[in-house]
Nucleic acid binder design. Structure first.
Length: 293
DNA sequence: AAACTTTTCAACCGCCAAATT
DNA sequence: GAATTTGGCGGTTGAAAAGTT
């Protein structure tokens, strides 16, 4: 015998919520907090399914929701995160405070997807493509493999970058340093976790030379401590996109990492490796004023 | 001004993993 | 350990709004 059913299916209201219903839901949650969505409708005097109440609250009524149109910066961030995460809307929205997964999904499907297509990019793989006979053409690759490859490549480069910095004892307080390890914090945050926890069958076979469990714990601590800073910064994703503008698939990542370590600029004053180029050039013209809505 | 088309986005649906009994 | 529900997620739908003819 399991638990009681989530709600009586009969006599429940569906469709758009009325202001009165919204008031009841907000008032109830204000007084009793969220949780136990099953009993909430009855206790709040609503003829709605608990699931419907939860959706209304999380997507519309929550006080921390940022309403209004997306800023160009937010749109850039969504595009960059989508290149890495794919259609993981909840993971993407966790990096945009005040925005819901539903809102981001709608933004993608109604604006960004079309814009990328118009710019000649496949909105699934983010690869440059051309339109022939109304269909996309370009190098074949599985979207999930593409996103995993981008993750792996970006992560390895970020780890190599981090190692280089520690070897050189670069001052940790510099802005560029915090920019460069943003990816590592993202990787060790809940977003990266969705990838780390993927079934091994989906992961490219590889060796992770810097990913000992002890270092993860340390980085995770930093990640939590700096979560606020992370969320307000877009430099990591800018870097990720930049570092993955090539379409090459990483075949031997430990070797690549070694190469990256050895490929350190001979001139120690050259800090260009920290990633400060105009990363949006991956999508040339995408954010020209004329291309914005 | 009316008819038609396209776009937007809130809400629903079904699936799945985790939790509960 | 099986059966069942819950909560969360991504995909899809359809009514309303906006745009076009």
């Amino acid at each position: 015998m399991g638990r009681a059913p989530c709600c009586e299916k009969k006599g429940l209201k569906k469709g758009p919520w009325t202001p009165e219903e919204d008031d009841k839901l907000v008032e109830y949650i204000k007084n009793h907090g969220q949780g136990n969505w099953r009993s909430l409708p009855k206790l709040a005097g609503l003829l709605r399914c608990g699931k419907s109440c939860r959706l209304r609250w999380t997507n519309y009524l929550r006080p921390d929701i940022k309403r209004g149109p997306f800023t160009p910066e937010e749109e850039k961030l969504v595009i960059q995160l989508h290149a890495i995460l794919g259609n993981r809307w909840a993971a993407i929205s966790s990096q945009l405070p005040g925005r819901t997964d539903n809102e981001i999904k709608n933004l993608w499907n109604t604006h960004l997807k079309k814009r990328l297509l118009l710019m000649g990019f496949d909105p699934i793989t983010h690869e440059s493509v051309s339109l022939q006979n109304g269909s996309l053409t370009g190098p074949p690759s599985s979207p999930s493999t593409r996103h995993m490859t981008q993750w792996e490549s970006a992560r390895l480069e970020a780890e190599a970058r981090s190692s280089k910095e520690s070897i050189l004892s670069l001052p940790s307080s510099t802005t560029k340093h915090s920019e460069s390890d943003f990816f590592l914090r993202l990787w060790n945050s809940e977003v990266g976790e969705t990838f780390r926890n993927l079934d091994n069958r989906e992961k490219p076979a590889s060796v992770y030379p810097f990913s000992s469990s002890s270092s993860e714990t340390t980085i995770e601590t930093v990640a939590r401590k700096d979560e606020k800073e992370c969320r307000s910064s877009k430099s990591c994703t800018e870097y990720m996109i930049c570092s993955n503008s090539s379409n090459e698939v990483v075949e031997d990542e430990s070797e690549l990492t070694l190469e990256l370590l050895l490929d350190f600029p001979s001139n120690n004053n050259d800090m260009s490796f920290l990633g400060h180029s105009d990363c949006y050039t991956l999508y040339p013209g995408l954010y020209n004023e004329t291309s914005l809505n």
